[in-house]
Nucleic acid binder design. Structure first.
Lengths: 235, 235
DNA sequence: AGACACCCAACTGGATCCAATCTACATAAG
DNA sequence: CTTATGTAGATTGGATCCAGTTGGGTGTCT
């Protein structure tokens, strides 16, 4: 559920990250799946991964358990692990869940946002725009979530945030895919600026704007996926 | 995220459950944590668990990863795993999340419920009442979730259901604890009958009733926990 | 007596080894 | 020619073994 919360408490500076090999592996593999290096349905072979990272199969196996719990892979006994494939209805369902949960947490956050919070968000947004113009897909995916997250932190709703993060990991895969396929993210960029502006004035209308932002992103994505499917069966 | 969805598709009869040792271990350990056999903050020693189940430490370690992902334990490197402790605000947050998500999915489910679905729910409810009168805490916990789940299945919202299940696993711990401490579950029993009745007539007012049911459960639980704390520091 | 260094027991992390199972290909029978 | 069967290689599941870390206890020095 709420794994991958490294850096959960940046309250204390000077915090070293001491993670075990399985955790580090899970992080790396998750990133690679999100980036599309491992495609939907592709099998993940323990030995191959172990060889790549120059370790034994055991930490790989533990990492697989984490990824499976995060919903990124499914593994069948004695048959190995494959990258999860989601039907489009379930992808849309994920976006609808995000819309509901993120609007809820944003409601809590809105009244508690300080200038400090907002400045951090603005900073992330600038990095996001920069990454987008440089077409650095992986960075855009990561920073997109970072921006959303930064808006929700003031709510101080730890469980909700963990849940949302889990869903975002899954949608990230498709968002990054969409970035490769379309230019619909232009629209999202403008949305982000508008969201930040509304947050600055603590305008409650940002809630519904956020809902539209997420739902539209879902629809755009499904359109792109559908277009790819009919335009040719090429992978 | 959406782990533990065994039996997801009973479409084909004669389906044997073939789970690996780590999965079986995770199921068993989860149940023991939920039942309070392992208390909050209690350390789980790999070797001890392995000895209990007469297996090596390796499957135990993989099971731990699953439980950690489900939020039931936290493990620090070289220091082992302990059962998660949640502050009361986060417990309430979990109930609020349940209220939001379960009301949402119930909205989808309500119009799609057939007599068949409702009869199954009624059957489960009877078993639940039976277990409650026999004071079989573990069974009450499990069947309580089964009843809720049975109401949501018609919605055909797989991701939402998986998310809700994950949260319910966590709240189950405290619900079972509450069953030991108070008799507030009487109230919940009547709620369940009322919910089923409203579902039978496809009355949309069941949505808000469900919200109240869950939120009240959360408040009752927190009261019970608080009462225990002030009445004495006894474990 | 208190503080510091060192050592040892307990435990976790990771590697290697062996067993169980699946897949694919080859072979044989209908 | 198609279908069933058997066998070999590949791959996963689980056990055992070794190394590294942690925390507590003891002994010594101040």
């Amino acid at each position: 559920m709420n794994e991958m919360l490294e850096q959960k408490n940046p309250r204390s500076k000077y915090r070293l990250k001491r993670q075990s090999l399985p955790e580090a592996l899970a992080d790396s593999l998750r990133e690679r799946i999100l980036n599309g290096e491992f495609k939907e349905g592709e099998p993940l072979v323990q030995e191959a991964i172990a060889a790549e990272y120059e370790c034994s199969r055991m930490p790989v196996r533990e990492a697989f358990r984490q990824l499976e719990a995060a919903g990124l892979i499914v593994s069948k006994i004695h048959k190995g692990a494959v990258v999860t494939t989601l039907p489009s209805e379930q992808i849309m369902e994920l976006f609808e869940l995000r819309a509901m949960l993120e609007c809820d947490i944003l409601t809590y956050a809105l009244s508690r946002m300080t200038d400090h919070h907002l400045n951090i968000s603005e900073q992330i947004l600038e990095q996001l725009e920069d990454a987008y113009h440089k077409r650095d897909i992986a960075k855009v995916g990561a920073l997109n979530w970072e921006f959303h997250r930064s808006l929700y932190v003031p709510a101080d709703r730890i469980q909700t945030l963990a849940l949302i993060q889990g869903i975002n990991v899954q949608t990230d895969r498709y968002i990054r895919l969409q970035l490769l396929l379309t230019s619909a993210f232009e629209e999202a960029e403008q949305d982000h600026r508008q969201i930040l502006k509304l947050c600055r004035s603590h305008d409650p209308s940002v809630i519904e704007f956020m809902r539209g932002h997420i739902i539209r992103a879902g629809h755009n994505l499904l359109d792109a996926l559908h277009a790819r499917k009919v335009s040719g069966t090429v992978a």
